[in-house]
Design a protein around this nucleic acid. Structure first.
Lengths: 330, 330
DNA sequence: CTGAAAGCGCTTACAG
DNA sequence: CTGAAAGCGCTTACAG
């Protein structure tokens, strides 16, 4: 059942029905009501592909995730979904597994579907590709990375600041040998870790030496945290605090330290990052840097909207603030 | 840049370019190569809305969630995403907050976008609406509910069986007063809980009485589990085991029991449902009924594909098996 | 192996 | 306030 069917039924032109469907006004209330009745009666639903073909956009937003299973993701996606729904946008969801070519295919497809723009957790080494898509007219909001290019806007949490909050806190508690367990994927030459930068800055500001032995690269998982903690405990001069790249790693470290019979936080304090729900479930409860992921998602949508109407004007990066949540582990 | 641009560039008709883009064959390799070159050179990307308008489908799948923040969801979504990607489908993601009218709007929109079909966690009391959409030609795969209607297929885990596994296990360990904490939303007249049915059946089969005092409705959250456990501990004859509707509730119960100074599992055993990652983080580790959510997601996509080509033929419900994972809490 | 024509279901100028 | 015409960018028969 098409617009024409409705028009025929009522005895008006398709143009008039279209006007009612899109709430353009300029139509007698009476005609309007008759059309609305016919729409309900016939069960008319606009064909969004036809509309999109003409308008050159489909009122959709692409959400391109590197990894759906990241504990970070659900709340972020929920924020995106809520904000998108509130402005009448439907979201396309794609996961790239952080693979550049999968991301490329995803963006091609999304562009073909007429998305207003995309919110992207970039795949590894995909900056140039993103810049190219943006140059082709695709508005892109990038998370967790800093890309400076036209039609690309950056939305991020104050990660570096969060890291300094965590380390400052540990130093205040008298810790002098603060180790860091860092996701080895997060530490490339083209992608310096903001958490590590904050960690280093905070230590230096406190007059503490940055001991390279205390910075260990690990797998981004609970198991990785365990392995990292084991390596730290094996050092001749072991640390009195561990700052982890994220909560999963922190939880692994915490578990290993406790399993070894050490007291947390007395022997070793542990601080995570992200503040996922598990922080309050693990014993002792994990101190962490809270990122308001829901807000981050909403901000991403808002930024995408601005970007789409900014017509190529560069947008300042939007930074969502973080806060340290102190719990039993520190 | 359109199909016509490419055609003009190469000096062939749009029809021929279309044939190459869609890999239809029937075209000299030489022409094909020239077209492929022109496509790359011009950066042609097919307009999926135009294609969809004609084909009457957009090669997309709708994923309609009640609640993105359910710990159940990410792995399920990942399975859906992986299976969809493998057959060249992009997914639309919508969350309804279990609200019937939001679900209605979501389905209307998805239908307008030309989805092949939808995978739905139904909103409360929305069965009739789903049946209506299916009657209008929308293939629907329903999770966590049993709806018997044309063009609707059911995919589910063996929930009831899982509950009997859990209770059988507790009975084997000598427990005679097994309580159940049940999500109060899951217990409506139109939606009998399969977990409760399994619980009751297992107890009866073991010759144990089902004590109504031991069945308590709680909020679906850790806090709800705590409240439920408190109520159980306040009974004159308290239980020696708790079977929870899901892991979040179980974890709350576990925490409360431990906080009260009781031994788990010696004084009270606790078993959850779903087997989320937290089960291995909480102390003592939580015994749970494992649902392979990734497989469930893949099965949903597969079923949707069958359903779309089944042309109205009813499909048998697909049941994904579950397994009991015994840990320290029982 | 290739092309000319029609049309998917809408919206966009434009005219009355 | 309403309508007739053109066209968005493709694919689908059909003809050669």
């Amino acid at each position: 059942v098409t617009l024409d069917d409705v028009a025929r039924r009522v005895g008006v032109s398709a143009r008039t029905v279209s006007r009612v469907v899109n709430d353009e006004g300029g139509c007698t209330p009476e005609t309007r009501d008759r059309i609305l009745d016919a729409i309900a009666e016939l069960g008319y639903r606009p064909n969004l592909m036809a509309r999109g073909l003409i308008r050159r956009r489909s009122d959709t937003i692409g959400l391109v995730a590197a990894e759906l299973l990241d504990p970070f993701f659900p709340e972020f996606a929920d924020g995106v979904q809520a904000a998108a729904a509130s402005i009448g946008r439907t979201i396309f969801l794609v996961s790239t597994d952080s693979d550049r070519s999968r991301q490329h295919r995803a963006l091609t497809s999304l562009l073909g579907h007429g998305v207003d723009g995309v919110i992207v957790f970039p795949a590894h080494d995909s900056r140039n590709d993103l810049v190219r898509f943006a140059a082709d007219g695709l508005p892109i909001v990038v998370l967790n990375d800093e890309i400076d290019a036209p039609r690309i806007a950056v939305v991020t949490a104050e990660i570096r600041h969060g890291a300094t909050l965590a380390v400052d806190h540990l130093v205040e508690r008298g810790r002098t040998r603060v180790a860091m367990l860092i996701d080895h994927h997060a530490r490339g030459p083209d992608r310096p870790s903001r958490r590590e930068a904050g960690y280093r800055a905070a230590l230096e500001r406190a007059g503490l030496r940055v001991d390279p032995d205390l910075i260990i690269e690990v797998d981004n998982s609970i198991a990785g945290g365990r392995v990292g903690a084991a390596a730290l405990l094996a050092l001749r001069r072991r640390p009195d605090a561990i700052f982890a790249y994220n909560d999963m790693i922190a939880i692994g470290a915490l578990q290993h330290v406790v399993d070894q019979g050490l007291e947390v936080p007395d022997d070793i304090a542990v601080v995570g990052f992200d503040d996922i729900a598990m922080c309050e479930v693990v014993k002792p409860n994990l101190t962490s840097v809270r990122i308001d992921r829901d807000l981050l998602g909403r901000t991403a949508v808002e930024t995408l909207t601005s970007l789409a109407s900014a017509d190529g004007e560069p947008l300042e990066p939007r930074r969502v603030s973080v806060e340290l949540v102190v719990r039993q582990s520190s």
